[in-house]
Nucleic acid binder design. Structure first.
Lengths: 222, 222
DNA sequence: CCATCGACTTCAGCTAGCTGAAGTACATCC
DNA sequence: GGATGTACTTCAGCTAGCTGAAGTCGATGG
């Protein structure tokens, strides 16, 4: 068996320093799922199936307006978990989810969590910490969207891509990144060209190389 | 004593169905604080003092960019709590806070919470639910900002004001609402005028009256 | 009663970024 | 090898919403 669910679960923030009781329950309740590129995993407002974990692939969490315009809240990759909130509060999905590439996933049914939070203090504390982290991330996103130009947002994305493999790879097209930065593919192209002129990066159609991280950081206003 | 801290704490989501042990600890650790209009309560990045509760007044939670442009993430009013996240994960303040009007507050020091979460399963579950609610709220905010025009955002704000007293009252000026909707006072004026033309509202300098909620909802695309 | 000040409105430009269209590179399939 | 399709780039308008300035209303204070 090339993929050990237990080993990967152990590495998640939720189970850090965790006794095996909670872990065991999770593993036994896990359901495997696979999706091909473009396939919808769930829709906003539906009752949540549970907490999802990606084994391999890329998944977008997104909102649509009535005109069909899309905003991608987050792009997740290997070993990331998503739809935590619904699993924890037992509510409906707050947004839509679809596979960006062919994807292998696991689903952990909702009902297990509420019990574990109440019973296991350490687990509860971890959950609170992970949720706090999500809140901090969302606040940063709002800050980016409301207080910084597209060029700055693109520069920040490039810096994030270094640490977050989910932001590169199959299925993560320029259009997807545009929908994440609340802009258009065209405007991203323009911004990249503008950043290139400063000498911070160079790029062709397929690869972006950071030449001067310091310069890029200053464009990103960081 | 006209104001009973215990009575109000009992009404907070955190303490719903709560035994008095946790409640007692909170009450005894509470520190009173007062601020006049415009006064800063704390800055982003500082170590958090704890969880804040407003007795009376209005408080803005906001971000600034290097040019001094402001985005108000949230406006809180009587009996609201804020800076929960820092109190729960023990991290730094994720944003700045300042009083919009003369304000009376309470602060509950950080250290008490982590202990209570770990010890008391019911309390932990409540905290997880409140945090989940915050995440849902932030997702809705991002959706509004990225997928809807200023007119729609203004219409949604008007509908929210009916339920949320924090969004009206002393200190909550047009400029503050503009900083919350990521626009300018001028553009809000224009949007209000535009909505008025449909007959959904009427307004003068000081008061906005909703005449046709159904119409307003359709402008808000709800 | 008049002066001052802060909040709100209106308007005339201006601009960041969107839209649509056309063109290019690359991969896949027959 | 040619055909088709998908991503990416570039460019020429266009527009929502910003900026700055000027004016109005109403409250507060001397």
């Amino acid at each position: 068996m090339p993929f050990s669910l237990a080993d990967h679960l152990r590495q998640l923030a939720y189970f850090e320093g965790q006794n095996s009781a909670v872990l065991e329950r999770m593993i036994h309740s896990a359901v495997s799922h696979s999706a091909s590129a473009g396939e919808t995993l769930f829709l906003e407002g539906e009752q949540a199936a549970g907490l999802w974990m990606i084994q391999t692939g890329r998944v977008k969490i997104y909102k649509l307006n009535p005109q069909g315009q899309e905003h991608i809240l987050r792009i997740f990759g290997d070993y990331d978990t998503f739809n935590d909130i619904s699993a924890f509060d037992g509510g409906a999905n707050p947004a839509n989810a679809a596979a960006l590439s062919d994807t292998q996933l696991w689903v952990f049914p909702t009902h297990v969590f509420q019990e574990c939070i109440q019973r296991d203090g350490i687990f509860a504390l971890r959950v609170v910490q992970v949720l706090s982290g999500r809140v901090r991330g969302l606040i940063r996103q709002i800050e980016n969207l409301t207080l910084y130009s597209v060029t700055v947002r693109v520069a920040r994305l490039l810096l994030n891509q270094v640490d977050d493999p989910a932001l590169t790879g199959t299925g993560v097209t320029r259009a997807a990144l545009a929908a994440h930065l609340a802009t258009t593919p065209q405007t991203i192209s323009t911004a990249l060209r503008e950043i290139e002129l400063t000498g911070a990066i160079e790029f062709d159609r397929h690869q972006i190389r950071i030449l001067r991280e310091d310069l890029l950081r200053s464009i990103a206003m960081l």
